[in-house]
């Protein structure tokens, strides 16, 4: 259809054309026409993902200076840097989507600090030992790989391209995590205990990571919409099942346990049966009432305040370097 012909369509006809396009597997670019609702869904998804990468750098950042060998110091620095890089990549995708609405990166930052923009449940949690640094990179990144790989086929092309780069790096993160975990698993009793404690601490958060299985649990219907818009192909529960299938055998094979005695694979139903996490607690956590929510938000806030003079100075000497959060 020519551009002129497309412009003369009614909104409803445009919407139908749009759905036809994505149903045929076509990808949408930033400058293509898109329904407001589609943009809205993307703007729920992508800034949340981007800011989660950035907030996700903070629990591991706690262990960067303390990493227990030169090799680990280098590896974890590089890993955390990657996460900041993912945040940067995604915020740029979000910026393009926000531009027609007259919003900028600063607005994302403000939304984070006022609590309007949420970040992933896992990054609200404590990471009190080096074992946590290992478990985060192994299992939290492992969970992220599962959900991000699923989104690679997203109908929104710029997001898909960013995810492709991100997924390539995530593979290294999981390897880095596995290396830390293996060293602890094969180490002294104290090291093994440190690791097991960390797994116990993270288990519920890892189950929560994929979100509730049905909208009833938290009253949120974005899942279905996102499937319709081809932003995702699997449900939360399918992803969680994939995660359990991949990691339960690995966890057991290095002699670790998970803190759920009911957990087992139901051969007939062909799925994992597990103790549901406390979804009310989940809601509390993502509403910035988790154990480390305020402390981590405070880090972003203090960096924002402390560097205000830098942003002003750069604003005066406009360069490529001015993009700021």
């Amino acid at each position: 259809m020519s551009l002129f012909a497309f412009d003369s369509l009614t909104e409803e006809e445009k919407y139908d054309r749009f759905l036809e396009r994505i149903n045929a597997g076509e990808k949408i670019e930033a400058d293509d026409w898109m329904p407001d609702d589609y943009r809205k869904q993307l703007l729920k998804l992508i800034p949340m993902h981007g800011i989660s990468e950035i907030m996700g750098a903070l629990p591991e950042k706690e262990w960067v200076p303390k990493a227990p060998s030169l090799r680990r110091k280098l590896a974890i620095m590089s890993k955390v840097q990657d996460e900041m890089g993912h945040g940067q990549l995604l915020l740029r995708v979000a910026e393009d989507l926000m531009r027609p609405l007259g919003k900028r990166r600063e607005d994302i930052m403000e939304d984070l600090l006022t609590g309007r923009l949420k970040f992933h449940n896992v990054f609200h949690m404590e990471a009190p030992t080096w074992g946590d640094a290992g478990v985060i990179a192994w299992l939290v990144d492992g969970a992220a790989i599962i959900s991000q790989t699923m989104m690679l086929t997203t109908s929104y092309a710029p997001y898909g391209r960013a995810l492709k780069r991100i997924c390539a790096e995530e593979v290294f993160h999981a390897q880095h995590g596995e290396a830390i975990v293996m060293a602890l698993a094969e180490g002294t009793d104290e090291q093994r205990q440190m690791l097991q404690d960390a797994v116990n601490r993270w288990w519920e958060s890892l189950l929560m990571f994929f979100g509730p299985d049905t909208s009833k649990r938290t009253g949120n219907s974005n899942q279905d919409k996102n499937i319709m818009y081809k932003l995702r192909t699997k449900s939360n529960e399918e992803l969680r099942q994939d995660f359990l299938t991949k990691y339960i055998p690995r966890i057991h094979s290095i002699g670790l346990t998970v803190p759920d005695e009911t957990l087992h694979y139901d051969e007939e139903e062909e799925m994992w049966v597990y103790q549901q996490p406390d979804w009310d607690k989940f809601k509390q956590i993502v509403s910035n009432n988790g154990p480390r929510s305020q402390a981590r938000l405070r880090l972003r806030e203090i960096s924002h305040e402390n560097n205000e003079w830098v942003r002003e100075a750069l604003g005066k000497k406009q360069t490529m370097q001015t993009a700021s959060v």
Binding site: V64, M77, Q88, L299, R300, N307, R311, Q321, T322, V325
Partner: peptide, 12 residues
């Protein structure tokens, strides 16, 4: 400084 530099690009 990781995570608290003046902007994300600089952090990286």
């Amino acid at each position: 400084w990781l995570g608290i530099a003046p902007h994300i690009e600089e952090d990286v």
